[in-house]
Design a protein around this nucleic acid. Structure first.
Lengths: 221, 221
DNA sequence: TTTTTATCGATATGGTCATATCGATAAAAA
DNA sequence: TTTTTATCGATATGACCATATCGATAAAAA
């Protein structure tokens, strides 16, 4: 409840929120950090510490009021208000994310996509229009867009990022495998699928080349 | 070059690899960690340390042989060999990932999808078939599938994970907002889009409620 | 009322990782 | 040959984070 939430904590809050939302209205009125941890397969202390960083309404022997906690978490994560976003790069990945509607649930609405080669009208089969990049700055300002999603090739990423920043965007969700440079007030959030794949592949390769002896495991632990 | 590569390092290696692959054959034969860092906008020391953990072929004043480094990185990340995967949960996100073909570039081939409600034939418009979950175990064993991609709702995730593990899968890429429990020899890699979104939303909310004074920034730094 | 107990919140410890600093080395220059 | 210099590899420091431990508290039981 201090105002400074650690990055790791902030990334776990949506998990709690998603679970709490599944509790029916006629369910238990209160929930403890212990119960939450058990339900999510997490450490009891970590959950308690995470919750303590956003709320001090926890009471011994009863826990937190579910409805209050949901509200608190929505405010802390910002998932309550809906933010407008644009997507740059309507390639395979870009179109995949566009067709996935699940982001609204977490407060993100993608208004339009932009590409070097725009698609006329609804030729794309998508709900959102695919416009030429030249219209990006005007569009962002007119619709007060503050989030940009980057799904362009690595070579084009920095250029597009600059365009977004110059158009008033304050946070960039970057799917390209590059580190982007931007003014400090602009948040660059990297979502590197290739990075995750590397972890998977490495794990498999390790097991293929032969585990020397008893694997100690110890991951995700 | 010691054999123990840290998780964080392993996640950055694909970034280096992607960049090195863009260097044309008639380009420079060698590259230094300094140059790589500058090109990717990263810290010089971090790049050098990462490379040192997979190779000791760096020579003062010249750096690394590009072709050798590419090969080394491909081996370390395991992106060289192609791994077979199945996807469970053909909802919006699942279909989006299926239609995105870019994973093969990083060594992942999705053979088929599974769902409670399978789609007959090519009715889905996808290249891969969408089969009933009941066929999952048989399919995995027959095709030696070692990677499972989970794009089911949170409630169903643990069940599906268990099925995958029982079918011989050794690594699970989990897109559901839950912590999965699995035997230690099975790698659970969480790709929590909601977590990333929370970071973005929080950043925007912070800026909306009024930055007290000069923002110190300090993120991604 | 007194005792018990489940839970919270705080402090302490250890591990992982990023950054800074420095000596060692090999190519280039003098 | 000797000197210079760019780069490598190693060590040291500090930040962040996860886990363990413990006293405090309020509801329930006795």
């Amino acid at each position: 409840m201090t105002g400074d939430i650690s990055k790791s904590t902030l990334q776990r809050l949506p998990v709690y929120l998603a679970y709490l939302r599944t509790i029916p209205p006629d369910g238990p009125e209160h929930i403890s950090a212990t119960a939450l941890a058990a339900a999510l397969g997490m450490g009891e202390v970590q959950v308690r510490k995470d919750l303590a960083s956003v709320s001090d309404a926890g009471k011994p022997r009863v826990g937190y009021r579910v409805s209050d906690l949901v509200e608190t978490l929505e405010q802390a994560t910002g998932c309550g208000n809906l933010h407008s976003a644009v997507l740059v790069g309507a390639g395979n990945l870009g179109r995949a994310l566009l067709s996935y509607g699940g982001f609204e649930q977490y407060g993100l609405r993608i208004l339009a996509a932009f590409d070097r080669e725009p698609l006329p009208g609804t030729a794309s089969g998508l709900k959102q229009p695919v416009l030429p990049v030249s219209q990006l700055p005007h569009f962002c300002r007119e619709h007060q867009v503050r989030i940009g999603i980057l799904t362009v090739p690595a070579e084009a990423a920095q250029d597009c990022c600059d365009t977004l920043v110059n158009s008033g965007v304050q946070a960039v969700w970057n799917f390209a495998p590059v580190r982007l440079t931007a003014p400090p007030e602009v948040l660059i959030q990297n979502e590197n699928m290739a990075a995750s794949l590397a972890l998977l592949s490495h794990h498999l390769s390790k097991r293929l080349t032969g585990p020397p002896d008893r694997e100690t495991g110890g991951l995700e632990k």
